[in-house]
């Protein structure tokens, strides 16, 4: 009713006053930097102390795109995304399905599966660093039981990304399980009852009812996991002690950004990397919007 009339000046003033504290913070630390980092990516001569811009151009982009390390970073990030996301989504859906079947101890299991989510990435990466130790690490001990020779997880460039992927899957499962449980809980029990009467076996029910019914959540979880994986940084830094893996073999996009910005003071190139990251995430988001309009029915 009253909410639809045209606001008076006094009402508008009051509204903006209530939004003001938030707007100050978001304006200075979110809105301005968005504009500023796009601009900065085109600054080719920039003095950050005086905030003076000498010249503009596409140099930052041409520089990073001709840098082999940037190519590695992009490639590694994509491998990481492809390595983590499908396994994480499928495993978390399976575990959520199992968790949804039980009552006894259900809360205990949920708490356990979710524990890695609340855990500091840096701290748990230290633990994994120890687990990945070649000589006395737990993983090699367990692999030894099934006859696999010790692997030098953290120093062999061939295994650097795999080590990162395993850690990320382990860390990320709980969050996705939680979201799948919400979706599973929302599927109407009567559909299963009807299918049961028609003689559908549990596995058939799962494949023909559960999977299609929760497809919106599967999609959401996937998109979210892709975006989060694009941003991988903390794990790399902590697992390899402030290095992007042995011989740079775990260089990722955000690590590249961090290095350009913080270690090499190449602000323009770092900002250009940020823009590339933004575009990648924007693409994923656009696919998401297009796809949910077309295929996902709530």
């Amino acid at each position: 009713m009253m909410n639809n009339h045209k606001p008076t000046l006094k009402e508008s003033l009051k509204g903006w006053l209530y939004v003001l504290p938030l707007l100050l913070i978001i304006g200075v630390f979110n809105l301005y930097p968005i504009v500023s980092s796009f601009a900065m990516s085109f600054f080719t001569e920039y003095n950050f102390f005086t905030n003076e811009v000498g010249a503009l151009g596409l140099n930052n982009f041409t520089t990073i795109f001709s840098d082999p390390t940037f190519h590695d970073a992009l490639e590694n990030t994509l491998i990481f995304v492809v390595g983590v996301v499908p396994v994480e989504v499928i495993l978390s859906l399976l575990i959520a399905t199992l968790l949804n079947q039980i009552k006894w101890l259900s809360n205990l299991f949920r708490t356990i599966y979710f524990l890695p989510f609340v855990t500091s990435v840096v701290a748990i990466s230290m633990v994994w660093r120890w687990i990945y130790n070649k000589d006395a690490g737990l993983l090699n001990v367990l692999l030894g039981w099934i006859g696999i020779n010790p692997i030098d997880w953290l120093n062999d460039p061939h295994y650097a990304l795999l080590a990162l992927i395993i850690l990320a899957i382990w860390k990320g499962l709980g969050f996705n399980i939680m979201l799948f449980l919400v979706a599973l809980n929302n599927v109407d029990q009567r559909i299963y009852d009807a299918a049961h009467l028609d003689g559908a076996k549990p596995l058939q029910q799962w494949w023909h009812i559960t999977v299609p019914m929760i497809s919106p959540m599967t999609f959401l979880v996937t998109v979210n996991a892709v975006i989060a994986s694009f941003k991988v940084f903390d794990e790399v830094y902590a697992l390899y002690g402030g290095q992007p893996g042995p011989a740079g073999s775990a260089m990722t996009l955000v690590y590249y950004l961090y290095r350009a910005f913080y270690e090499q003071n190449k602000y323009g190139q770092a900002a250009a990397t940020g823009v590339v990251l933004f575009i990648l995430i924007l693409l994923v988001t656009l696919v998401q919007m297009w796809f949910s309009k077309k295929h996902v029915h709530y």
Partner: peptide, 11 residues
């Protein structure tokens, strides 16, 4: 939607 990693430099 904007990744916070992008905002780090201006901030």
């Amino acid at each position: 939607m904007v990744p916070v990693e992008m905002l780090i430099i201006p901030n």
